[in-house]
């Protein structure tokens, strides 16, 4: 059996157990608890009104600039951006579920999960559903999520050298976090496949971990 958890608190006294805590900190947090509204008072269903796309675009372009420091190549750069997306994705997953809690269910099959990502997750953060979901004909462990016009790419007033692949890495990170969270580990890579109609078209290649394939087979 794996390491057993120790109960973290009894129902009685809860004085801060961390030594070296500044007195102000524990005093503040308990007065915080009583005094002001905390995040726990917020209504999750009250969605904040939308913000300007430019806000995201400016923030994102700075993230890219910052990530460029000390980076030894494109791959490392994409990993860093993907990490930001991962952080966001972990939260969007649970947030999107809790908002639809009446109809919520856990995805137990690959196809169901990918459709959930394409619709609910995409809508939750990008305000639209992804354009297509395809299964690779040759590889049984590969699927493709297609976005003709990734939101993060369609911005203005940012340096042209910002490649669209950077934004896609961020989105790939979001997808990866959702898949990991739902217990469907996979590697996600973003590929730019411009067409005349959709110059920013991006394909997110989802390569499932062998463990997932095994489990799918078993469940059939």
């Amino acid at each position: 059996m794996s390491k057993l958890p120790t109960p973290s608190r009894a129902s009685s006294d809860k004085s801060s157990s961390h030594p070296g805590f500044a007195v102000r900190s524990s005093a503040t947090s308990s007065s915080l608890a009583s005094r002001r509204a905390t995040v726990y008072d917020r209504n999750m269903n009250r969605r904040a009104p939308d913000l300007a796309l430019s806000t995201f675009a400016f923030l994102f372009s700075e993230m890219v600039q910052y990530s460029q420091k000390n980076v030894k190549g494109v791959q490392e750069m994409e990993n860093r951006l993907s990490a930001y997306g991962y952080h966001v994705g972990q939260r969007v997953l649970e947030l999107a579920t809790v908002r639809e809690i009446k109809n919520a269910k856990r995805e137990t099959r690959v196809l169901g999960l990918l459709q959930f990502i394409n619709t609910t997750i995409w809508k939750a953060i990008f305000g639209k559903v992804a354009d297509a979901l395809e299964k690779s004909k040759d590889q049984e462990d590969e699927y493709m999520i297609i976005d003709n016009n990734p939101v993060a790419n369609s911005y203005i007033s940012v340096p042209k050298e910002l490649s669209s692949l950077d934004c896609a890495s961020f989105q790939a990170g979001v997808i990866e976090a959702v898949m990991d969270g739902c217990q469907f580990p996979a590697k996600i890579t973003a590929h730019s496949v411009p067409t005349e109609l959709y110059p920013l078209k991006t394909v997110f290649l989802v390569k499932l971990d062998p463990l997932v394939i095994e489990r799918e087979k078993y469940m059939r």
């Binding site: 995040v39 726990y40 917020r42 999750m44 972990q90 939260r91 649970e94 947030l95 809790v98 809690i101």
Partner: peptide, 10 residues
Amino acid sequence: YDLYVKTLMS
């Protein structure tokens, strides 16, 4: 779950 998600959002 609602409380958990609020914690997670930070």
